[in-house]
Simulated assay, not measured.
Amino acid sequence: MTVPSPYADRLSRLPVVRREVEVRGGKTAFWEYGPADAETTVIAVHGFRGDHHGLEPVLAFLPEVRVLAPDLPGFGESEPVPGRTYDLDEYVAWLSEFAAEAAPGAVILGHSFGSIVTSAAVARGLETPRLILINPIGAPALEGPKGIMTKLAVLYYALGARLPERVGTALLRNRLIVRVMSITMAKTTDPELRRFIHDQHDTYFSRFSDRDVLRDAFVASVSHDVSEVADAIDVPTLLIAAQRDDITPIEVERVLATRFSDASLVEIAHVGHLIHYETPAEAAGAIRRFLRIPVERHP
């Protein structure tokens, strides 16, 4: 990372400890933010191609909360297990085991692809008092107004997987393509913030272990969405959605919110799929208010 974070001062005041735990036969690296004795612990799952760094701006505005932020298997500093297919079933099993090892009963949070993994895990029995979804993927990626762009992405990742390994991996890590992704998603007109966002993607978007892991994650990300499991989730759920999100339009997020038995939707204006970078204070404020709402307990 070469561009200073606008949130560096706040982050510098947070206690941060790097930890590791073995999950499903591989090492999962995770970072513990905030006070160890905090009243609330949150497990935060990042999005596709990123790692735990992506959610740091939001965590900077939640200093009173203990947050465990793992790198998904095969991304950042977490190891994949050789020969394993990282489809949604595997990610759900990984998250369920990680939560049992690191923080049973924690609040679960997922951003983007992380929203697919976390919602599926909770729907399948991962115990949590609350679920938080930032930029949730609310509809099939291959449908809707951006379906053509998604189909192009499918071709890109398929080509990266089929070319000779060195060439394919170089294509998948191509800085120009990463920059195009970043420019497409960023909505802010603040030049300093845009430089920071692009630098974050340049630094962390290619930290996948190998192209097989990246291909599996991409296939999982476009083959599933939160709407598949919303009906099966019975814990209080917060959806934080962007009014200019190119991946899931806000109209779709409004419909998605009605699919849960107990959900609230917070809409953030003038931002797209990068709430965690562009409007982290607003996201953190919504999370803080949500965490303060008493959870109704049934005998």
Rank of each mutant, 00 (worst) to 15 (best):
V226L: 11
R175Y: 05
G160D: 06
A170M: 08
L126Q: 06
V213R: 01
S119G: 09
D202K: 10
A170S: 13
R195G: 07
A139M: 09
K187I: 00
I177Y: 15
N135Y: 10
R254H: 04
P140D: 01
A161G: 12
I250A: 05
A161S: 15
I240S: 10
I148Q: 13
R162K: 10
A242Q: 10
R162M: 13
N135W: 13
S119Y: 01
I134L: 14
L172Y: 09
S227L: 05
D210C: 09
A232K: 03
M149Y: 15
L176D: 10
G168N: 05
Q200F: 07
P136E: 04
E127I: 00
R162G: 02
E165D: 15
V255K: 04
A121T: 03
T184R: 14
D245W: 00
R194W: 02
I233G: 05
D202A: 15
S206E: 07
R215T: 06
Y157K: 07
A120S: 14
I197R: 00
L193I: 01
T188Y: 02
P145D: 06
A153F: 08
H224D: 06
F196Y: 15
R166F: 15
D216T: 01
A153I: 03
R254M: 07
V219C: 04
R244P: 03
S209H: 04
D210F: 02
A230P: 06
I134G: 03
R130E: 10
L152D: 08
A186K: 04
F208D: 02
L133W: 10
V154M: 14
K187R: 04
T203V: 09
R254D: 06
T150D: 14
I240L: 14
T118F: 09
A217N: 02
I134Y: 11
I250M: 08
S119C: 12
G160W: 04
E127C: 05
I233N: 08
G160A: 01
V167R: 08
I247S: 15
A141P: 10
L126I: 04
L256V: 07
H224L: 09
P145V: 08
A241K: 00
I247D: 05
D199N: 13
V213T: 05
E253P: 05
G160P: 11
G147H: 04
S182T: 13
S227A: 08
L131Q: 10
G168S: 04
D212Y: 09
S119N: 04
E228L: 03
V178C: 06
P136V: 11
V167S: 15
E143C: 02
T258W: 00
V213S: 00
K187G: 00
E127H: 11
F205S: 12
A141E: 02
N174M: 00
K151F: 15
I197W: 02
K146A: 15
L131A: 07
P129F: 05
A123Y: 01
D212K: 12
S209P: 00
F208L: 01
R244C: 11
E192I: 05
P136T: 10
Y157N: 09
R244L: 13
E192T: 13
P129H: 06
A242W: 05
A141M: 09
A139Q: 13
F205W: 14
K146S: 15
A120Q: 12
K151G: 02
A158K: 07
K187H: 03
L193C: 02
L172K: 01
P136R: 14
R259M: 11
V229C: 01
